[in-house]
């Protein structure tokens, strides 16, 4: 067992996910099974090996910093679950 139910609850919080008790148990068992099968990675000697973040080496792609057309506010807000006065609306964040 690599991870406990408590670990899974902690990771779920980080990922902003919620699980019911039976889902937590199933998730813990599945993650342990998957991670156990990945143990063989630890047997590979990677001393001095650079990690790859991309398959094809690309440098920063620069462009001129100039004004270009962008989405109209109505288009940008069209998919919002809730919008008001040209803004995305969310539950109250600051207690008064």
């Amino acid at each position: 067992m690599k991870i406990t139910i408590k670990d899974v609850e902690h990771v779920a919080g980080l990922a902003r996910l919620r699980f019911k008790d039976d889902e937590l148990e199933a998730m813990t068992a599945q993650l342990n099974g998957i991670l156990d099968s990945f143990d063989k990675l630890q047997t590979v000697d990677t001393t001095g090996i650079e990690p790859s973040t991309h398959a094809v080496d690309v440098n920063n792609a620069f462009r001129d910093d100039e004004v270009r057309p962008s989405l109209a506010p109505t288009a940008a807000l069209a998919n919002a679950p809730e919008a008001e006065q040209g803004c995305f609306k969310v539950p109250r964040i600051i207690e008064v």
């Binding site: 990945f38 990675l41 630890q42 590979v44 990677t46 090996i49 650079e50 990690p51 790859s52 973040t53 398959a55």
Partner: peptide
Amino acid sequence: AYYKKASQVRTLIR
């Protein structure tokens, strides 16, 4: 142990 190790082995696969 996981992400970095995997990224290093990715280099070996390349």
